[in-house]
Design a protein around this nucleic acid. Sequence first.
DNA 1: AAAATAGTGTCTTTCAGACAGTATTAT
DNA 2: ATAATACTGTCTGAAAGACACTATTTT
Lengths: 227, 227
Amino acid sequence: MPDDSPHQNGKARPIATVDAVVLVLDEGMLKVAVHRRPREPFGGALALPGGYVHVDEDQDAEAAIRRILREKAGMGGFYLEQLGTFSGADRDPRGWSLSVAWVALLPVSEFAPEDPEIVLIDASDPGDLAFDHATIVAAAMTRLRGKGAYSTLPAMLLPELFTLTELQYAYESVLGIRLDQSAFRRRVAEMRLIDPTDELRRSAGRPAKLWRLAGAPGTFDRSIGGS
Amino acid sequence: MPDDSPHQNGKARPIATVDAVVLVLDEGMLKVAVHRRPREPFGGALALPGGYVHVDEDQDAEAAIRRILREKAGMGGFYLEQLGTFSGADRDPRGWSLSVAWVALLPVSEFAPEDPEIVLIDASDPGDLAFDHATIVAAAMTRLRGKGAYSTLPAMLLPELFTLTELQYAYESVLGIRLDQSAFRRRVAEMRLIDPTDELRRSAGRPAKLWRLAGAPGTFDRSIGGS
DNA sequence: AAAATAGTGTCTTTCAGACAGTATTAT
DNA sequence: ATAATACTGTCTGAAAGACACTATTTT
């Protein structure tokens, strides 16, 4: 018997939402997607894309955030991982609430929301955001930085085909440090993280070989660089 | 205006619970605390300690799990970190539910629940558990193993004062590999993870110096061992 | 003295960082 | 030819792993 009563064990249930920290690498900077809230609470403030869980429609919380990103941001394919759950009596003036937060990574070339209200702002310094969303963005940045050196997460910010210079730059942006070119390429090659293609990218100077990620995004044991 | 209506945006709210994977190091094995459920659903099955969020009582989800561990397990001080949120329409027959899961680590000497219904079982092979609790335990073990080499988490399984041999054994248990004694001690010393005390532990053989953790539990950059 | 456990010294190999060099293209 | 970018080779120092050795206690 499905239960849609307002109470659990005689107690009221919290509000349940999902929110996403959508990150892209744009003009050499990590940026996060936000929109201006049209309604109270926090009307007029910038907020992460998110919304209520629809228990009659969403199979689980991941399905809920995917539905919302599709509806609100027109986003299709992207890397998604759960960040954590933020909860409390005071974070939403409507009552005790609980938000399952997610991190989404995608190439900026794929970021083209139909809704012009969605904009990209500096993820390192998002300023005042609605609810506790500034805290959530900070947690996402910490997660990305921490996991960056031990995973292919930074590559999720690049298009399917990329040059080694671009890959190194993605890692440098995520980690916030400069890496040695020679050592970086050695590590990437040893770890077999990427597969070569026959294609080249041309600009000024010598053309660069294009590569693609070898396997599914994942973590590895040794660091890609940095201490 | 606090909101205790059953609906959010015209939709029913999910059930909201918290559950904990309480891990201890006992007889050289990682064990998890479970209890036998007295009631349906999953009456008679083993389950993680957990319960409903009480919105009128708990400040946030962390306060909820701390209350429950105190009430159900008589547990006071322990290391606690959020593991993740498990959700879905099918994981609880009572309806769409959402559980914020936590990992708690404590020395087995501190684990003395008043309730005799709480028992320790092998965390690597918990067998059938209620709900999706086996999945949650597996996620906790993966987290602990992944973070073990880069953090002082394994030390949270030891009492306040411990020998270097005990510390190494805690890391070996968490990581599932043997570490070299000399290299391990070198690393621990270089990183200044621990402070010496004047006390000794005596058994057969040469007495061992006792140490305590230097700072708050946290992560570090380089691995403590293993590849 | 023997057994048991704690703790140290040292050799070797591996690997990360630094940096300079070569390669291939556009202008 | 020169500038620009891509890519590689090599040296050096630091650190990890292996393993044997010394130290201090109980029995």
